[in-house]
């Protein structure tokens, strides 16, 4: 398996991926700088700059997300995000056991990478959740805050803006956890950098 080279990531996916990564990191840093804004903290980006950057990058990320959606609609890449519910829990369990124990015992991965299965079941589940649930929510709530007049003023007696902002921050937080875990798991390859190199060259 290790010697067989697979072309897993076509150019459009790589462009989308790195654009998404760069924009997401800027959004994360500026989001934290606004949420915990403190003019005396030298590690935070200034509030004014954060607002502008967050707005611009938020719109850019939303447009880039369209590239992902259309790319998945019109190429075979979309299949990588589909899951059968039957036996899903077993597959997720097996992959988790491999990450937690099997890989330290030098066991072979239970779901080897192929052109049909670029992602193992755990990746498939997490990537699908992040891209088809997390991203739509964070984009919709972000757009709502960019145009607050479209937000319902009151929701169950609480400010609609507050609910939207809380949702945006919570999903942002969950996606930022995904980012950290994603970067870490990507170091688990033939070498620490091999997966990062794959996302640059396209070849695994």
């Amino acid at each position: 398996m290790a010697n067989e080279k697979l072309y897993l990531y076509p150019l459009w996916i790589r462009i989308w991926h790195w654009l998404n990564a760069a924009l997401f990191i800027i959004l994360l840093l500026t989001g934290i700088s606004m949420q915990y804004s403190n003019p005396e903290n030298p590690f935070l980006i200034s509030f004014e700059l954060s607002v502008q950057l967050h707005n611009i990058c938020g719109i850019a990320l939303s447009i880039n997300y369209l590239l992902f959606i259309f790319g998945n609609l019109f190429t075979s890449n979309g299949k990588q995000y589909k899951m059968k519910t039957k036996g899903l829990f077993k597959r997720l369990y097996d992959q988790s056991v491999f990450y937690l124990f099997g890989m330290f015992k030098k066991q072979d991965p239970p779901f080897p990478i192929s052109l049909e299965n670029k992602f193992n079941p755990l990746q498939r589940f997490i990537y699908s959740t992040a891209m088809y649930i997390g991203f739509p929510i964070i984009i919709a709530s972000g757009m709502a805050m960019l145009f607050p007049e479209i937000i319902i003023p009151q929701l169950f007696g609480v400010s609609g803006l507050l609910v939207t902002a809380l949702l945006h921050a919570i999903i942002g937080f969950v996606l930022s956890l995904f980012l950290f875990i994603h970067i870490y798991v990507c170091t688990i390859g033939n070498s620490i950098i091999s997966n990062f190199r794959s996302m640059i060259t396209g070849w695994h």
Partner: peptide
Amino acid sequence: INDSYVIGANRNKYLNILSVVIF
């Protein structure tokens, strides 16, 4: 918390603690 949302000013202590713990 109920009447408005001012980014940077609205901070929920419990959510902050929870996020730090999870992170």
